[in-house]
């Protein structure tokens, strides 16, 4: 058991990035390091090594300036699995309501000895801003409609696990591309790893000039379904509906919802992902969500190991930069 615990260190060699702000910045090699490191943690978990110690004595701050349940719990547990101490911050009831600035709040928390800051914020670019002002390593847990790198990494990890590769696969992102940070991060990551990416949704929810990112744009799920290896069903945000982006949920479900009839038109081994929380009966019918093609809960458990991998790699960078032997 101790031998297995001495996890492989060759996987992480070549990693020297201080922050994970988005997949736009990461190279193909860096993406593979994260995915491989996550696979290593998954292997260890499978043999019962769930509590590891590399971050013992360090502090991870989870700064959630925007509500989140699943991502926050996942990051908190990932840090604990690596034996870090954690401090949690959420915007409600904080000094933000007393007018303290975002940067001042983050600096105050950093001054408590925090080395790693996980941040979620409604403003795109907020993690970049923290990276400029703090000494800590920053990990983006979702910034507005910009990026959500760990969600995309866990999607990609799940796809790679299922197909054994990313190169050459056709991945279709379905739904509200315009407001989706998950879509943006997935596009950057999947393109770098050699997938063909299709974005599919109502014309009103496809952002301008997205073709320039090298993706195919479609407005018909039925057209692209037969060529799709993996479908990623983005959540429709009901709160956006006052924007008149589409006439009704019913019509959306009719045009872009994944149901039994559509499964029959899809490839036999099509994989269905959903970053959730899912609206059953809208993006996906319950029979499909709970059916054999869906791997929605598998995504959640992969989220934990992806976040462990990210924190661990940032820790390696930090100790290396401080000259502390790993």
């Amino acid at each position: 058991m101790n031998i297995d615990h001495e996890y492989r260190t060759d996987i992480s060699s070549g990693w020297n990035r201080k922050h994970i702000l988005g997949l736009q910045d990461l190279s193909r090699d860096e993406l593979n390091i994260i995915l491989n490191q996550a696979a290593e943690f998954k292997r260890l978990a499978a043999i019962g090594e769930t509590k590891l110690t590399p971050l013992a004595g360090t502090v991870v701050a989870n700064l959630f300036f925007e509500p989140s349940t699943r991502t926050r719990i996942s990051f908190g547990l990932a840090a604990k699995r690596l034996s870090a101490d954690t401090v949690d911050f959420s915007a409600s009831g904080s000094s933000l309501s007393k007018g303290e600035s975002f940067i001042d709040t983050a600096k105050t928390i950093e001054a408590m000895g925090v080395s790693y800051v996980v941040v979620r914020h409604k403003t795109p670019g907020a993690p970049q801003l923290l990276a400029q002002h703090l000494d800590a390593n920053i990990l983006n847990a979702g910034d507005g409609t910009h990026e959500h790198p760990t969600q995309a990494l866990l999607d990609i990890f799940t796809i790679r696990e299922h197909f054994g590769k990313i190169e050459g696969l056709t991945v279709t992102l379905v739904g509200d591309i315009l407001h989706s940070r998950v879509a943006r991060s997935n596009i950057w990551g999947l393109k770098k790893l050699g997938a063909h990416v299709i974005v599919c949704g109502p014309t009103t929810l496809i952002p301008s000039e997205i073709e320039q990112l090298g993706v195919e744009v479609s407005n018909s799920l039925d057209d692209v379904l037969p060529r799709t290896d993996c479908l990623n069903l983005l959540r429709i945000q009901f709160e956006r509906q006052r924007g008149h982006y589409f006439p009704s949920i019913r019509e959306y479900a009719h045009l872009f919802g994944m149901n039994k009839q559509r499964i029959n038109k899809a490839k036999e081994n099509v994989l269905i992902l959903a970053p959730g929380p899912i609206n059953r009966g809208v993006e996906i019918t319950p029979d499909v969500a709970d059916g054999p093609h869906s791997i929605i809960l598998g995504q959640v458990s992969n989220g934990l190991i992806i976040r462990m991998a990210c924190l661990y790699l940032l820790h390696l960078q930090r100790t290396a930069s401080l000259g502390i032997p790993g």
């Binding site: 736009q24 795109p124 670019g125 910034d143 507005g144 409609t145 910009h146 990026e147 940070r181 943006r184 952002p207 301008s208 000039e209 997205i210 320039q212 990112l213």
Partner: peptide
């Protein structure tokens, strides 16, 4: 345009 799409603004 392209940059508003990439930046999520």
């Amino acid at each position: 345009g392209f940059y508003s799409t990439v930046l999520g603004l």
